[in-house]
């Protein structure tokens, strides 16, 4: 008999508890159990990156993680990127650079790109392409996605950007170029 497991985690900065079957993926947990549908399913086998979320300091395909595995960990999804002060600079850049067409891959690209720039704000085009190779986009040909990440990287502080710095830099939602 398989019963649901009680899991305590920190989701987008807030303590969160939920009950899941041990066989439910983190993706299913986020979408069906918790109700955060911003994280998308594209393949359910780790080959498209649409379900990318951050667990502690690493990005993962949430379809390849069990919900029970995030006990005691910090999970960040696309819903956790913006703050009450405004959008994350990458969200703003994706809007300004027209980096999305259908938008289904966008949450995964944003979470993955943020993780890269948090580590390596000055990542060059090749490094950005290398880092994002696990995220498929079928609409844009990637050009405008890469440019948006480059743009945010170019305007970031050379040192590793802290969360506080990133928040301070954010422009209000809807701000224009």
């Amino acid at each position: 008999m398989v019963e649901k497991v009680h899991v305590r985690t920190t989701l987008n900065g807030e303590p969160t508890e939920f009950l899941v079957y041990p066989y439910q993926s983190l993706l299913e947990t986020l979408r069906e159990v918790i109700g955060l549908t911003g994280t998308k399913e594209g393949c359910n086998d780790g080959n498209c990156g649409a379900c990318t979320v951050q667990v502690d300091d690493r990005i993962v395909d949430s379809c390849l993680v069990l919900g029970v595995e995030v006990e005691g960990k910090k999970v960040t999804t696309v819903e956790g990127l913006a703050t009450p002060a405004g959008l994350h600079p990458l969200q703003q850049a994706f809007l300004e650079e027209a980096s999305l067409q259908c938008g289904i891959c966008t949450p995964g690209f944003l979470v993955a790109s943020k993780a890269l720039l948090d580590r390596e704000p000055k990542a060059d085009e090749h490094r950005i392409r290398h880092w994002l190779a696990g995220n498929l986009c079928r609409c844009t040909g990637y050009d405008k996605i890469i440019r948006a990440v480059q743009k945010v990287g170019a305007t970031s502080k050379p040192a590793r950007a802290t969360a506080a710095q990133a928040t301070a830099k954010r422009r209000p939602a809807g701000a224009r170029k």
Binding site: G46, V55, I59, V60, V65, A112, W131, G134
Partner: peptide, 9 residues
């Protein structure tokens, strides 16, 4: 092995 997401695990 895989991409960055896979290499995390």
């Amino acid at each position: 092995v895989g991409g960055i997401q896979i290499q995390s695990r």
